[in-house]
Design a protein around this nucleic acid. Structure first.
Length: 390
DNA sequence: TCTGGGGTCCTAGGACCC
DNA sequence: TCTGGGGTCCTAGGACCC
């Protein structure tokens, strides 16, 4: 007898905050957020203690401090979260190889193969939560359902530190009373469009006449929403999704205007993003420059190269070309610069060198990688833009 | 309130080829 | 000389998620 609800969604509660509390137990029970301390920082993760004050992730830190007097702000430590994440995913894979990560702290597990070891999927969810608690000392919530998207909604409802199993027979009633904004793919824009149609709950969605929804949100989005509202989500749990893009971006504490500052910021970004590319064993064909100006207007410029690259100078030269195609409005400065790499392919593939790429830089980059890996990312700086770049 | 950084996916227009 | 339809790739922007 197979499980009717074989999909688990495991989602950690206030993950970054709880990892910080492991290192500093004095933070337990106190109003903590993880986030930057600069003038433009936002909240990366909010503890449950600050949520009654209206503090949420993505909120500007200045607003969070106003909303919650006595707020404790802990600067993020990405490497600590990555390490905890790796242990978490190892634990998942001890239950089943069918693990699909959604982010550092959440995953879908297809547990249909475990029916000989457990009575039902609720027991599996309970066992996973217990092991995370015992071995990582972290709280996790679990949703159990017949499909990925219902499981995800269930884990959301189970928070904090709980488990919710939505039986197939109860699924439509569970969905009907949800606010549409809880559906996957409904953000501010779609929510506003749906409100104009008088749609508030998932049940309302089902009563919108054919054609109307399609005109409001587009055909494919409408079909998607109708499917979700009816609980149709046949997507399987797919392990080992490979990355489609790698990017680095940074918002400056004060807007930049000098060419030197812009060049050196982009050189740093190119170093960082290609280091991560090489570490993943990948090369990239498409380079995208992202520029946000002082009015918060964002543009991107991209170029697909004849062959793939993984060297910092090649990426840097390309973004400098792309930068020439960005026109800032009068008097505007640069708030954010980013570099994205896409069109990724495995490094082992036969190399297609781009004309003008100097192979000598490859060994320089690899040497820098080695030093940074050993001593940390800021161990080696660059004196300035490379002589041949630009 | 004045808006981070890491991603995914979709759309739409244009170039180009057959 | 003017014209078709389909397919694929590229580019830019936007919505959305954690």
């Amino acid at each position: 007898m197979a499980f009717s609800e074989p999909i688990l969604h495991v989602d950690m509660d206030a993950f970054f905050v709880e990892v910080e509390r492991l290192r500093d137990p004095s933070l337990r029970g106190r109003p903590v957020v993880v986030g930057g301390t600069g003038p433009r920082a936002v909240v990366a993760a909010a503890s449950y203690e600050v949520r009654p004050f209206g503090v949420r992730s993505a909120m500007p830190m200045s607003a969070a401090r106003r909303a919650c007097p006595g707020l404790i702000v802990v600067p993020p430590d990405r490497s600590a979260y990555s390490e905890a994440s790796e242990r978490l995913f190892e634990l998942f894979r001890e239950f089943t190889p069918l693990v699909e990560g959604l982010s550092v702290d959440e995953a879908f597990l297809d547990v249909r193969g475990l029916r000989h070891h457990f009575g039902d999927p609720g027991e599996i969810g309970t066992a996973i939560r217990q092991r995370i608690r015992d071995e990582l000392s972290l709280p996790a919530s679990v949703g159990v359902a017949a499909s990925k998207f219902v499981a995800k909604l269930a884990s959301e409802r189970a928070k904090p530190d709980g488990l919710l199993w939505v039986r197939v027979g109860d699924q439509q009633a569970f969905l009907d009373e949800l606010d549409v904004s809880e559906l996957w793919g409904v953000g501010v824009a779609t929510k506003a469009a749906l409100e104009r149609l008088g749609v508030e709950t998932v049940a309302d969605l089902g009563s919108v006449p054919p054609g109307l929804l399609e005109r409001a949100v587009g055909e494919s989005h409408a079909a998607h929403l109708r499917d979700l509202a009816a609980g149709h989500d046949p997507r399987p749990v797919e392990p080992d999704q490979r990355a489609r893009s790698i990017s680095v971006e940074h918002t400056f504490d004060r807007d930049l205007s000098s060419t030197d500052e812009i060049r050196s910021a982009l050189a740093g970004h190119a170093d960082e993003v290609t280091r991560r590319l090489r570490r993943a064993g990948l090369r990239a064909r498409t380079v995208t420059l992202k520029v946000r100006d002082s009015e918060f207007h964002t543009v991107t410029r991209s170029e697909t190269l004849a062959g793939s690259v993984d060297v910092s100078t090649a990426v840097f030269k390309t973004v400098m070309r792309l930068l020439e195609r960005v026109e800032l409005g009068a008097g505007r400065k640069i708030r954010l610069l980013g570099i994205g790499l896409s069109g990724l392919e495995a490094r082992d593939r036969p190399e297609q060198m781009v004309a003008g790429t100097d192979r000598r830089w490859e060994s320089v980059d690899r040497a820098l990688d080695e030093v940074r890996d050993r001593f940390g990312g800021s161990a080696v700086g660059r004196a300035g833009a490379r002589p041949d770049a630009g």
